[in-house]
Amino acid sequence: MRRTTMRKAALALTGVLSGTAVAIGCLAGAPQPEQHTAPVAVAADRAAAVKTVRARLDSLEAQADKAGRTAEIANEALLQHDTAANRAATDRAQAGLVALADRQTPELTSLLQRLTKLGVSTAPAADGATATTTALVGRTRALRAVSFARKQIGDPYGFAKAGPGRWDCSGLTMKSYSAVKVSIGGHSATAQYNKAKRQHRLHSYKNKRVGDLIFYGRPGAVYHVAIYAGHGRMVEAPYPGKRVREVKVRAGDRVSAVARPA
């Protein structure tokens, strides 16, 4: 899985205290105070504190990566063999991701606040969560969106329909992400592409991830959208007369960029 590293959050200290102890009115020949002792000690203490925080951030990142890999492996197994055991394993892995995100968010936010007090430049996400937590929640939402789409397999195509029971392509992707509280641009493949572009959420197809939206047509005139399910496969509501299905990703007419809503 592609790691969004927490090390970027713990940057080098932006400055070190400096100063010089000056003796005023000292007798000639009297010993002078040792220079820089206090500032150097303060800097050393801060560096040690930053090192401790960074070590904890690394530990939390490792936990997030482990949970993410577990969820991806379970999801890939389910895509290969849709059995009751694999469905249960996938549900457990996804629940584990959600629980880990809930546990980590308060501590990660606290660690960022501590770094700020230590004078370290940090880059928290807009909602106060760290980059790792944001990425973790994104992976969770993407896996759950794919799970929602897969549950509709076998439903008939319905023009301009967004369920339940009948779907067109953009209705399926819209509701799959709506189920995890993510808005992807409305009931239109072109609108979904354009929103991803405005939000800088387009990525090269070669870097696709589970949950990414795959488009067909051309930028500005997209006529079809599907959701990537992993292993070179996608879930789609294809066209009248066909049902929602999971198939290999088609290369013909495929747009070179995918959207990553979460």
Rank of each mutant, 00 (worst) to 15 (best):
A23H: 03
T140K: 06
A101N: 11
F148H: 13
V22L: 14
R87M: 10
S121N: 10
Y193E: 10
E107M: 09
A49K: 13
G158K: 12
N194V: 10
R245L: 04
T5G: 13
V244L: 03
T52P: 00
V16D: 15
A44M: 05
T105I: 07
L57M: 14
Q32V: 01
L11H: 07
S18P: 00
G230I: 09
S110V: 09
A131Y: 02
T122H: 08
V182T: 14
V182Y: 02
L136A: 06
A149E: 02
M174G: 00
Q104S: 09
R87P: 03
I153A: 01
A55K: 08
A21F: 07
S204F: 02
G29W: 10
S178D: 13
Q192N: 07
E246I: 12
D253W: 01
S178L: 03
G185I: 08
S256I: 04
P219E: 05
E246P: 00
G185W: 06
V180C: 04
A67E: 11
A123P: 00
A149D: 06
A10D: 04
Q192L: 11
P31C: 04
A131V: 15
G217N: 06
A229D: 03
H200G: 12
P219L: 04
G138S: 12
R7S: 08
P39C: 04
A99R: 14
A93P: 10
A125V: 03
S183G: 15
A47P: 01
A74D: 13
V137Q: 07
R260F: 05
R54H: 12
P106A: 12
D127R: 02
V235M: 06
R233T: 10
L202T: 11
Q35V: 02
R7Q: 08
G241M: 07
A226G: 09
A77E: 15
L57R: 03
T190L: 08
R245M: 08
T20W: 02
R7C: 00
G232P: 11
V182K: 07
G96Y: 08
R103F: 05
S121Q: 15
K66R: 14
D45M: 11
T116A: 14
I227V: 08
N86G: 09
A229Y: 00
T52D: 05
S18E: 14
A67Q: 13
M6Q: 05
A262M: 03
P219A: 05
A160E: 10
G154L: 09
S110W: 13
K151D: 07
L213E: 00
S176G: 09
A12Q: 12
K161W: 00
V50C: 03
K197M: 09
